[in-house]
Design a protein around this nucleic acid. Sequence first.
DNA 1: GAGTTTGAAACT
DNA 2: CAGTTTCAAACTC
Length: 743
Amino acid sequence: METETPNRTKAASSSTPISKFEDSPVFNYINNLSPIKPVKSIHIAQTLGSLSFASLQSIFTSPHVSSLKESRFHRRHQNLDFSKLRSPSRDAERASANERAEAELSENFGERISVPSTTVDQLSEQNKFAFELSHTLDYEYGSPDSRTNKEMCLQRAGQQVELDLGNTQAGPGCEWASLAPDTANLLIFSSPNDAEAFQGIMQMSPGLETGLGAAISSSLIRNNIAELQKMQLLFQVAVGGHPEMGDASESIEIKHAQEDPGSRDLETMGSYPCDGLNNEAELHDPFAEMKPLSNFQRGMRRRCLDFELVGSHHHERLPDRSNSSSLSHLEGMIASANLMLTSVNSKRGGEPSMCILPGIGLHLNSLASAKGCYNVISQDSSISETHSNMPCQELLQQTVISNSSDKEADETGNVFVEDNPLALVLPEEPNLNSPQKKRHRDEHSGDVDGCKRCNCKKSKCLKLYCECFAAGVYCMEPCACQDCFNKPIHEDTVLATRKLIESRNPLAFAPKVIRASDSVTKNEYMKTPASARHKRGCNCKKSSCLKKYCECYQGGVGCSINCRCEGCRNKFGTKDGTVPVAEADCEAEAEEAERREKAGLDVIPLRTEKLKSVLPGTPSGLSGSLLTQTTVPPPKSKPPRSTFLATVGSTYVLNSTQKLGKAEFLLPPLPKFEKPPQSNAENEMPEILRGSSTPNANIKTASPNRKRVSPPHGEFGSSPSLKSGRRLILQSIPSFPSLTPQH
DNA sequence: GAGTTTGAAACT
DNA sequence: CAGTTTCAAACTC
Ligand SMILES: [Zn+2]
Ligand SMILES: [Zn+2]
Ligand SMILES: [Zn+2]
Ligand SMILES: [Zn+2]
Ligand SMILES: [Zn+2]
Ligand SMILES: [Zn+2]
């Protein structure tokens, strides 16, 4: 039974999952924690890791830990690291690959191997740090729910970390978020150095290429790596880690050592391996840029939780590659990028413990909002964006990136930021504001809390029928699916299937809804009935696009010329371009009103306005929130939360980390996972989607803070198609700096 | 929670 | 590409 998967066609081939790992929240998380870096040599790392761990363990001994969970953690970390390693290595290759690689490796192993004196020192310190953090994390995450699966939580948490500050909603999960804060802070602060380094990197990155970049990156990397490693060790220790576990799979991967992802071990992770599909080609790419990014990212992570190491690696990849390859890559990337958040527990009990928001691609929102929480995904790219707003937040945002767009989405969702728990806060959705209410309809059943996910019975979660699969995330605890193959353990299958589906329809995993993002336009957005739209349009016959049966409506966007709906009365805009005020208003408003009422908000009649009014209040001021909202909001207010629709930018998320729990944040009310819509401008381009179907993630980019190194290149607008999905993604993200250099 | 409706996804 | 079937979510009760 098991697994066999349907298509596994190439499971083997898919080997690049690694990158995903990196991307995965978890991974990031880990990174934050541990200095370890991913280098290329995975196996070694593993091996070493185990050894080192062992030693460490003895030293630290785990505090409380839980076994299972812990074990997972370990795995994850390892995996993550590995993955990272690989990607970096790639980059390095170009630049001075070898040297770096070695360096990295050494670092990875860190302790064990020969680490440079400096490294060592750092490690020691970091280790301590990590150690503490780890505890904290465990605690926080674990406690909440209960979860049985701390593991998951952790992983997820890591992923989620990304979250956006802005959006942060407060859903049920929010509470969690509140808890998390400490952790987040810890993580974030944990390595001050990193931050600096990070910044430096950021700046450098643009120009970097091999030379400086390499040097810098290497140094940074080392530090980071060391830290990571330490962290990992710590974690393991804390957890109880058994280095051994989990590794089997990893070991396998090892063979590939450098690039190949080989196998993936996604299991532990949550996200899809990015590359899996394409393994082959993908990898290479990264170039110097990546490295810098990676470092950079790391810095980010620390601050924020990291969301993304991942992104860096991957996204760059594809530049040249032809589309075909890129697609798969994209996916991979996406997967990696994504992360998810998860919530966990909640589900059932009502206690919501946490939910995660997903940040899909850029933003998590959608997913997050989605019901559940679960995973989110994140995206690598997310990071990149950033619009920058605030310093700290900036990071988050960046990380979140997408958020901005998402934000809109947020309506539904929220976001969280990982980093800052602070952010978490509010939700904003128009609708939901208050968790309490929850939308009646929304989820009527269970979700409200949060998190629900798919309920597939016959598709094995390997078809687009499955929201999880379609969203690029692995099924999680909240899923009630049967015979599910959409799990890390079946990564190959998942990837192969994805690939297959993409081959049939390159846009299959592309975000369905494109939103205008800020970049373009908020103004326009408002003007146009539906600035954002469903790329493929709906085909509603009976619902008049007034219910969530309509993907356009569900995605919070108006119908467009691409829609073939009959009797369209989409609140967010009909295909005619009219915004059905009256009608819509009536209905929509009514709905919204209800929601609001529930929430306690007043009903605000107008659409956008409503949102704004609502939103603003919220956030604690996060700028992010504002952004998001602004961006997003469709005309009316809330869209129905979207579910899984992915919006453009999204990425995949996979879950690699879905499990994180800790991090979790909350989830908003959103509908399912959608991926958040990206922004836009180019979003619309289908190409993007296609290109990557999994575009995802990769975007990373940008510097958090400030500046993005490179200017936004014009956004992506420029050449979406060319580049591959990744780029596309990037594009979508407007602001972000772009890491990718390439072209 | 069961049952119905709906429209996308998958299949032919 | 169209027509049909399959599917799981959205919705209803
Ligand atoms: Zn499913
Ligand atoms: Zn699922
Ligand atoms: Zn499933
Ligand atoms: Zn419709
Ligand atoms: Zn439509
Ligand atoms: Zn319509």
